[in-house]
Computed example of a mutant assay.
Amino acid sequence: MQRPLAAALLSAAALVLTACSGTAEAARDTRAPTPPTGVTALAGSATSVHVMWSAATDDRAVTGYTVYRHGHPVKDLPAGTLMTDVTGLGPATAHTFTVRARDAAGNVSPDSAAVTATTPAATAEDHTPPTRPTALRAAPAGPDAATLSWRPARDDTRVTAYDVYQSGARVHTVPGTATTARVTGLRPATAYSFTVRARDAAENSSPDSGPAALTTPNAPGARPATAPTAVSAKAARGSVTLTWTPPRTGATPVKEHQLYLNGTFATTIVWGAEPPPGPVTYTLTVPATPGVPYALTLRARLPDGTWGDFSAPCTVVTV
């Protein structure tokens, strides 16, 4: 009796294994992502090129990108990164780039369209950075984009590129002949702060321009804007005083905010009674060390208990 039972158990196990194998086979991902589109290449200096592209698509998810120069891989990047600088290049040389997308199963897309950028000639012993761009302005270009404009910088040789920064992180690069840029991939009803730097062929970068802030409009049918607005800061010895306007949430006032310092949670601000109408203020104690920059952002707890959007960063330097 034991042998037939053992045989039956082995047969059942074989059936289970066959079923599992069939399920795994059916679940295998064999479809490659689409090739990245909108690839551009811009020589930022005599030895570097800035490559950008639009996201590829996949039936599951794109997990990363590889940038190729003349058919050889030079950069591997995660899925959320859609631009990179390729450095260590030869000056006064044409360089051709393509980009491929990959997914978690190892499927790789075809090459993107090839783009070529020519690096400028090297400038010997150039250690002088360009002047800062001035009169930076930012305007919404729909709920997910912004248009920036500025007055050009000056350089003892020439400006080869302008780098656009959003809250301290570079998000775009345009040629040195441009004085405008379009930044995409923004969120509706969200506050942003931008600065611009000029760069020359020797990789000298200017100081930041003055900041330009904007709030993107709501997408059609989206919820109202929930970020605090009109945020300003004033530094004193050992303290920073913030002033802002809480978001409008109907008849229920906002009584609680979170304050972040340089991107890290610092404290919760709570009004035990009815908060004052209009702008509100809060004083934060900081180390009494002069010349320290702080980027401060706020978000409000909404009447439904969730946290709203972050305000645009407000930067202040201790005195």
Rank of each mutant, 00 (worst) to 15 (best):
G168M: 08
D155Q: 11
Y294H: 02
P129N: 06
A24Y: 04
A117P: 07
D309L: 09
A212Y: 07
P224M: 12
P220G: 07
A235I: 00
C314L: 10
S21P: 03
T177S: 15
T23C: 12
A94F: 02
L302S: 03
T318N: 08
G308C: 07
T283N: 08
A213D: 09
S112V: 08
D163P: 01
T215P: 05
R132K: 09
L89A: 04
Y294V: 01
P36A: 00
A146Y: 14
T119W: 10
G263Y: 14
Q2M: 03
A145V: 12
A212T: 00
T131F: 01
H172T: 14
L10A: 14
A46E: 01
P140Q: 10
T160Y: 07
T63D: 09
P207Y: 03
L259W: 05
A139L: 12
H70R: 09
A161Y: 08
L259I: 15
L302W: 09
T243F: 08
D29V: 02
G210I: 02
L186S: 03
L302M: 04
Y165W: 14
T118F: 11
L296F: 14
P247I: 03
F194V: 03
P246V: 11
S112G: 05
Q2R: 04
A122C: 07
T245V: 06
T66C: 01
R60D: 14
P228G: 12
Y68P: 05
T195I: 09
P247D: 10
L261S: 11
A135Q: 09
A19P: 01
V286F: 08
Y260M: 05
G221T: 11
Q166T: 02
G88W: 09
Y192K: 09
Y282A: 15
Y165Q: 05
T118V: 14
A13W: 15
R100T: 11
D200I: 07
L9H: 13
V16P: 05
A273C: 00
A213N: 02
G263D: 08
T131M: 08
T57V: 15
Q166D: 12
V316K: 08
Y260L: 11
R60Y: 12
Y294C: 01
A251V: 05
L9N: 13
P140T: 12
S45D: 11
G176K: 07
Y162N: 05
T289A: 05
W271V: 09
T116G: 03
A153D: 02
R31S: 08
A202T: 13
G80I: 03
T289R: 06
P220E: 12
R151D: 15
Y260G: 07
P130N: 08
